[in-house]
């Protein structure tokens, strides 16, 4: 089941709107880890287009990631006004999920005592709460999954969309990537060895409204689930994964942090501009899909392979065709 893009929505540090997906994501803030400054691409949360969602009764207490998501999905829906929302499914992918509220809630537990942690905050920490807000606010009636994992869960989410459409569970699927930044993330990324290589974390949401492909640019075969434990194994996993595709099809540069070194050893032609230095995990993976669709639509190549370097556990890749 090939997937074609009907419309898109984006909330990134480059702004709001579909153009903000593939535009360079500027770093907007500096956070310090152990005295080392780390630059991050954060969202301007006082943007009126985001603040408007606070007027929705259900969204009054929602987490920042919820606002990113609902805005991105609304943009995508605006691009397809005649869509049957009741037959539209949504699958969201997260590397980190509801980080800000989860950490705030646990801080309340440890500092104020278990009995005094806010019961209002807790439900908003649950992985699928943001997506449930999106579905309730925008009236989507198809199947709904929140998927988690390393960055390859974006590829897994695309595969879920293929599965639902193949089975006729819905007519269209919105595949969504979303991440939010919390300063504690810098410490976690440092501890995980991911800051080496100049990774600049960023936040936001990208929504791609996809349907069964009739003609034109499409997301095709997906090869996912190639494991690694060490960075050397990461290269081997990538080679196993990419062996599923023609060796003559160029690769999109989707590397970040340590994967740049590994990818340099893969003997395949590279197409498109160098990957952005900012890293939004699933968000970056979603932007890569858009970049690949732009490349085939512009005629630069009839096919592109888009690798998804999971950063921590798996490698995936998929083909985008004109």
């Amino acid at each position: 089941m090939n997937l074609s893009l009907l419309s898109a929505g984006g909330v990134t540090s480059a702004g709001l709107g579909p153009d903000a997906i593939t535009a360079p994501w500027p770093v907007t803030a500096t956070h310090s880890h152990g005295g080392v400054p780390v630059q991050a691409g954060l969202i301007e949360q006082k943007d009126p287009s985001l603040l408007r969602w606070q007027k929705e009764p259900r969204l009054r207490r929602a987490s920042p990631i919820t606002y990113f998501m609902v805005e991105a999905v609304e943009q995508a829906l605006q691009g397809a006004p005649h869509l049957d929302r009741g037959r539209t499914g949504v699958v969201a992918s997260f590397f980190l999920g509801c980080l800000v509220y989860s950490i705030r809630f646990y801080r309340q537990i440890t500092e104020e005592g278990r009995r005094f942690a806010s019961p209002v905050l807790f439900p908003e920490t649950v992985f699928n709460s943001p997506l449930s807000h999106v579905v309730a606010t925008l009236g989507l009636g198809g199947p709904v999954y929140s998927q988690i994992g390393d960055k390859t869960c974006w590829a897994s989410a695309l595969r879920t969309a293929q599965c639902w459409l193949a089975n006729g569970d819905c007519d269209h699927v919105i595949v969504l990537a979303a991440e939010e930044f919390d300063p504690h993330e810098v410490d976690a990324l440092h501890s995980g060895g991911l800051l080496r290589g100049g990774l600049q974390p960023c936040e936001g949401a990208i929504a791609l409204l996809l349907g069964p492909s009739a003609n034109g640019p499409a997301i095709g075969a997906i090869a996912d689930g190639y494991d690694f434990r060490t960075r050397q194994e990461g290269l081997e996993a990538a080679e196993r994964c990419l062996a599923e595709f023609s060796p003559h099809t160029p690769l999109l540069d989707t590397t970040a942090a340590w994967t740049r070194t590994a990818a340099a050893k893969i003997s395949r032609s590279i197409i498109g501009p160098k990957a952005m230095p900012t890293e939004g995990f699933t968000l970056s993976a979603a932007a890569d899909t858009m970049r690949a669709l732009d490349i085939v639509a512009s005629g630069q190549s009839p096919e592109v392979i888009v690798p998804v370097w999971g950063l921590t556990r798996q490698v995936a890749a998929y083909r985008v065709t004109a």
Partner: peptide
Amino acid sequence: DGPVMTVANA
């Protein structure tokens, strides 16, 4: 190994 779909639908 192989594809992993981890759903977090509460």
